[in-house]
Design a protein around this nucleic acid. Structure first.
Lengths: 187, 187, 187, 187
DNA sequence: TATGAATGAGTGTTCATTCAT
DNA sequence: GATGAATGAACACTCATTCAT
């Protein structure tokens, strides 16, 4: 693939995410995407077999991203307190800094008609491996990974994506919830 | 003059929820709804001004329901342990028993194009009042309500709606997460 | 028929005329008419068999009106100059004072799909009789009535219904065209 | 990339005009137009942004035509009598030979909901220029152009479009009205 | 008489996709 | 590879009209 093409595909991806946020999957049509991306509707089909596959591919690509981001921030030699703090704050920051992508992925996940596979993704596998090691090292309580992930990420997400709370209020909530979660997970 | 037929409206609501789950908001068209509800497409417009208002109204009606359910299960004389256990298990059970409605509401909430109001709903107001009282009585830690709700409900939800875990496994996770959450919230 | 009913029918007629002007026959639906008239759509069918008949009846009623107006203004003992002046000015004034009705009738007449009958109306019969008498009395030239009517009314109409000319300019045009028409028709 | 097919657009235009005459703007739907033009309803939207713009564009195109026709028939060296005769007969013939287009334009003009602009068209500008010159050369009376046009064209039109008069009778009326109009306009 | 509920048939328009270039 | 033309199928919605009260 030439450079030119990559540019086009990037534009398409960005158009999909922006439009999905503004108008929902409902209002995101191929021709609108094409218009926003500056290409012809037919060109979209050069890069993706059809609309559903396009959405799935874009979703998969971006849904991995957050895990890589998180894993890049932690190290094995951190103690439990530092580890959870870093993990939680990194997750919060990721959402803030990648709001459009995050909301796209989130919206996609909540739609049973789109995201119904049980296939475990690569990113989460790495995270699980990391958590297992931490439990072995007695850094965090011996709780099922699924529960650790649930208790770590869901509350942060609900703070981060709320549009009705001001930034500074959010940071206070974040600080508080970190303490609460630490008291839940640390030995 | 004929009277409005409650049966018809009920059928429409059920059709909306079932179709939204199967096909997303995307694939839920007025004519499909009408067909499933056994009425003419035009009849839908006797009960709802347009599609968007229809979805909003159905969403609002059902999004309140869970709070009423939870509040009906708890009493002021419960101690912290009992209280959290009841709250968490009731929430889990509500999701299991009202899966379709819950997923509809959840999907709706995750769609920025649909649910973008900040207006606090009546149900959550009652819950906030209840939590304030519990904190005053030293039953639970003095943590901001927003965080309490986040840490209580989000993890339970992520267990309950997961379609890839078997029922018995879910119950084990539930039992475990209850202990974890209790250690986070109780004094 | 009771008084109440006449009121309703009057409201319907007025709604038809106002809506037709604003939105064309195209945008004038029974339910819009009913809403504007303050009755139920079904009530319209109490007074008119169906939409087409309703339009025809209203058209017929109002299309007669102008002739009665004109004939009420002229007398047999007028000389040619006075007669034409009165006729032309009365026509102009009628259009100005009954703009909505006039435009409704005009729009209806121009639509081959609606007004395609050749049946001579009563009003025009009276006018023809009057013109015949004037010709016999050598008040106006011996020209076919159809042409007299055409040359008298069409130019006036085109001045009167023009929305782009100011009132005072219209009156100047009217004064001038009266002289021109007089030089065409008077002996 | 396929090229736009002029044949298709021509078929659409013809379908619009024929249907509008038969059924009024009221009954002229995109799907009927498409069926008559032998294309898909969606194809209409390749050529026109929406229905209203489509009608406006077709109207504008054809409403100019008559002026060009008239101006092509007259020359500056004609005397007043010849000039008016040519003008009036050409107008009459144009209507007879382009009945569908003429009635379409006429119907459109009479509908306030559609034709409500005051913008002077190019065709009428040329005609005005021509009339000014004739007045300067003392060929016709010094009467406001608006009145000249009104008195020349409206009566002819009312003869030409009448469906209840036979052809030969029309020609007699035409001959007569020409004399009448000449006596009105010539010095 | 009067009405709101109900509807099959239609509206204008957009859709995802394919075709021809 | 890239594209605008083209389309059958679907969309949300409104229509004129009838029905039950």
């Amino acid at each position: 693939m030439r450079k030119k093409d990559d540019e086009k595909q990037k534009n398409i991806k960005e158009a999909v995410i922006k439009l999905t946020l503004k108008e929902g999957f409902h209002g995101t049509s191929i021709s609108k995407i094409a218009r926003k991306a500056g290409v012809s509707p037919a060109t979209v089909y050069v890069y993706y077999e059809n609309k559903e596959i396009m959405l799935q591919e874009i979703y998969l690509e971006y849904s991995e991203q957050v895990f890589n981001h998180l894993l890049s921030k932690v190290r094995n030699d951190m103690d439990g307190k530092e580890l959870t703090e870093i993990l939680l704050r990194s997750y919060y920051n990721y959402i803030q800094e990648n709001e459009e992508i995050f909301r796209f992925v989130d919206q996609f996940s909540s739609c049973p008609a789109l995201a119904n596979s049980c296939g475990e993704k690569k990113g989460i596998k790495d995270l699980n491996r990391f958590l297992d090691e931490q439990k072995k090292n007695k850094v965090i309580k011996d709780v099922h990974n699924y529960n650790i992930i649930a208790i770590i990420f869901s509350p942060i997400k609900s703070i981060a994506i709320n549009h009705c709370i001001r930034e500074e209020e959010k940071l206070k909530l974040l600080k508080e919830i970190i303490t609460v979660i630490q008291s839940a997970l640390l030995l």
